[in-house]
Amino acid sequence: MLKLAEVNALLCTEVLCGQENMEREIVTACGADLMSDVLVYTKEKTLLLTGLTNIQVVRTAEVGDLMGIIFVRGKRPGPEVIEMAKAKSIPLMLTELSMFDACGILHDYGIRGCVERVPRNEL
């Protein structure tokens, strides 16, 4: 379990909004650019790491009860995305790390994925 403030220190993030919610704790994380998968596989108390910066990312975090969003690879969302996240109390952070490295660091510190395995599709 990590507090968002600890995640920020580990990933050297810039906090875009939600500074007041940095005491939130996360247990699991999800690295994805596919919001449909996020909606299927995440649980609550989850942090989302993504390379997408559109408004649907904030919507997905809202309906899925996610604890916050980290944009990887230095991707910066537009002001309308930040405004919506503020209104919905969803913290947004930005890291210059790649998706792989950002997820790897959190994994090193005990954060795990939301699902261990998904049964393979049979065609």
Partner: peptide, 23 residues
């Protein structure tokens, strides 16, 4: 799961992966 007719600009938004109806 995985069947989709969504165009690329929808996939670029993170949707249209054929997970909507099953979800």
């Amino acid at each position: 799961e995985g069947y989709s007719t969504a165009p690329d600009h929808i996939r670029d938004m993170g949707f249209g992966a054929g997970m909507g109806l099953p979800n």
